[in-house]
Amino acid sequence: MHVDTGHNFSETIAFRDELIKKRGVKLIVASVQESIDKGRVEEESGIGSSRNALQTTSLLDAIEQYQFDCAIGGARRDEEKARAKERFFSHRDEKGQWDPKNQRPELWNLFNGKKKDGEHFRVFPISNWTEMDVWQYILQENLEIPKLYFSHQRECFVRDGILMAKTHFVQLAENEKVTLKKVRFRTIGDATCTGAFESDATTLEEIIDEVASSRITERGGRSDDKRSDSAMEDRKKQGYF
């Protein structure tokens, strides 16, 4: 399942569709646009608006519709301080909420997967991997990844100290100037909240060198995390992935 805000980079969607075709599997898309159209959520407006937080409703609606027992994802503890608190098997109540102060103890490799009807789990198998582990693994297994991770030319502008890609999803303020930069992305979310980094890395080896010497965290360019000091925790409590 993919929760699609409708504001994704076109490269992301193309990669997704190609991957699904190659694997021959069925893709379920939980569409934020549909949630807006149905009146389930209200779109933010103005400069700096993002559909990031709206994803939660689309995700929870889809989990309920398809009666999923668990949603498995690639979130890692080293990404962010609230994610550092996650269990491997993380319980969500019938409203999809996370209760971080009252998590089930999780010992050894014995995962308690018991739940009541309507509840579900978020399961994070690579919780203990670091950004470096991920890149080394991609290199070792020669995995395919979207081109956005490699250095490329792109029209960008600076907002709140973060280099943002110019897309038709983003409204520019008057003083924001667009320039052509050589950039790549370290994490890829919605185009409205994912910052780019200036980089010359065009191969996996060069990306690994860059990660090893970076002084900024992987999600340092994510404006969705920066809305407040508890931005991730607050969203996760409500059911954000």
Partner: peptide
């Protein structure tokens, strides 16, 4: 500190 937090370094 209420719950365990994991940190990584090398």
């Amino acid at each position: 500190t209420i719950d365990v937090a994991y940190r990584y370094f090398a």
